[in-house]
Design a protein around this nucleic acid. Sequence first.
DNA 1: TAATCACATAAGCATATACTTATTTACTTC
DNA 2: GAAGTAAATAAGTATATGCTTATGTGATTA
Lengths: 113, 113
Amino acid sequence: MNEALDLETTANILKLLGDKTRLTMIKIMSEHECCVCEFVDLFEMSQPAISQHLRKLKDGGIVNEARRGQWVFYSLNPSSSHYTFIQTVIKDLPSQNFKLENLTAQGKRICCD
Amino acid sequence: MNEALDLETTANILKLLGDKTRLTMIKIMSEHECCVCEFVDLFEMSQPAISQHLRKLKDGGIVNEARRGQWVFYSLNPSSSHYTFIQTVIKDLPSQNFKLENLTAQGKRICCD
DNA sequence: TAATCACATAAGCATATACTTATTTACTTC
DNA sequence: GAAGTAAATAAGTATATGCTTATGTGATTA
């Protein structure tokens, strides 16, 4: 049932989560797939800064990226060996759906349908 | 039932846990109270380095300190608003009891009884 | 009260981190 | 294929982090 969690890799995952921006990203991705430019709008942060955070998460194996058209969408990687651990950590954090709803209201939401 | 976890303070707690030394300390303290010199032996690290890690944990409110005689013992703070959260995070990490048993075998365990 | 042990704090240093601006790459559309 | 949009990468910078050595502080013991 329990993954074999070793201290070092767990500490590294926790370090990835231990940044407000990345933790918020992860909470958002646990609810919705999101593309880079949406994060840029959500965090009012430069595009490279967002890209660099996402790269760390990708290098840690905890998110997937998927290009669709011009956009690259990021989502939590359910195949990650730390997926359930991360779900446990973030499950009681406040939903960030309202942020995406704000984006939608501003017409800034990206949909590829 | 759920604490109101806000993203920023949670990220700060996760940052505290996101260091191998501190995460191991926390796992140890979840099983046993421990004094500074025991940590020094366990981690083969300088005494100031250990003290500084413990200070961060204390500043974060997640450990208690208690002086008994010459020694200062540290333990997880069950009154911390993040206590249950931390328990959840560390519960599947491998027990570090063997380390304390090694200390005992070497006669380096501190007991104040 | 002098010496010793346990721990904390101060100060310095090397590396890590999180950003910035500038540029490059990938894709779409005209 | 030229122009425009989205994202990644490169390079630079300021601050944070985790250690070190040196010193200060508090309790114990002779």
